[in-house]
């Protein structure tokens, strides 16, 4: 279960990160606040699959990061019950010089498994990723599709109650994508909660129970995927024609 109450998140824009600028500008308080999320209220029940849509910069990724505890909210309250597993972008956290197997161990542990649990599941992970022949090769030799498969295979094996997916599904080939969707369906049927960001409206119609449209840091509309997608697309076209 996830609950957000009046969640706001501001980022600072100034200070470029070097001593020189810090010394030069320390007297001028040029701290620009940039409000990415302006008061979000959202409830997601257990077993629900919720899609986030919105244009770039609308705050979708920030919202997901807040849920994974990467950021602390500027104000407001976030309650998350259950273990969260973020589906990592193309090999984020993979070390290029280590083999696929070694990376599975590290990534599994960083996503909250014990070493023993990873060892128990390693066969199943390799099996799912379909990388049996490459698993001992260094990850730098993997293609982006292979990285995505390995990443997804690890993420679905960490026993999370909540899966967070940020635009990473559309990288495998058709067959693998089908497999991922099947896995997501299974996950849902077992009572898992999913929150995902996608720009593929077809994917959303297919898996989401509910769709949330973020615009400029606020929830513009939420409800059945078909309705929300229609308004979202109408709005996008309207802005484009301006």
């Amino acid at each position: 279960m996830i609950e957000l109450r009046q969640v706001r998140k501001e980022f600072r824009l100034s200070h470029s990160g070097s001593f020189k600028t810090a010394l030069l500008w320390w007297r001028r308080k040029r701290i620009e606040q940039f409000e990415v999320l302006k008061g979000i209220d959202l409830q997601i029940k257990q077993g629900e699959c919720v899609a986030l849509v919105g244009r770039n910069g609308a705050g979708k990724s920030t919202l997901l990061s807040l849920l994974s505890r990467i950021y602390k909210p500027t104000s407001g309250e976030i309650v998350v019950r259950g273990k969260i597993a973020p589906l990592l972008e193309l090999g984020a956290g993979f070390h290029p010089d280590l083999s696929g197997l070694e990376n599975i161990l590290f990534n599994g542990v960083i996503l909250g498994l014990t070493r023993q649990q990873v060892q128990e599941r390693i066969d199943s992970i390799v099996e799912f990723s379909e990388l049996r022949n490459h698993i001992d090769a260094p990850v730098r030799s993997y293609s982006s599709g292979m990285l995505a498969r390995l990443g997804f295979a690890i993420a679905v094996h960490v026993d999370a109650e909540i899966l967070i997916v940020d635009e990473v599904l559309a990288v495998g080939d058709f067959a693998f994508e089908e497999k991922c969707y099947k896995r997501i369906q299974d996950f849902k049927e077992q009572g898992g909660t999913i929150l995902f960001v996608s720009h593929e409206m077809d994917d959303i119609r297919r898996v989401a129970d509910r769709c949330v449209w973020l615009k400029n840091g606020q929830i513009r509309l939420e409800g059945a995927p078909d309705d929300v997608i229609r308004s979202y697309q109408a709005d996008s076209e309207a802005t484009e024609s301006l």
């Binding site: 990467i70 973020p86 984020a92 956290g93 960083i110 996503l111």
Partner: peptide
């Protein structure tokens, strides 16, 4: 930083 931005630990 790439992984720090994605996973909490």
């Amino acid at each position: 930083l790439p992984i720090v931005k994605k996973v909490y630990f």
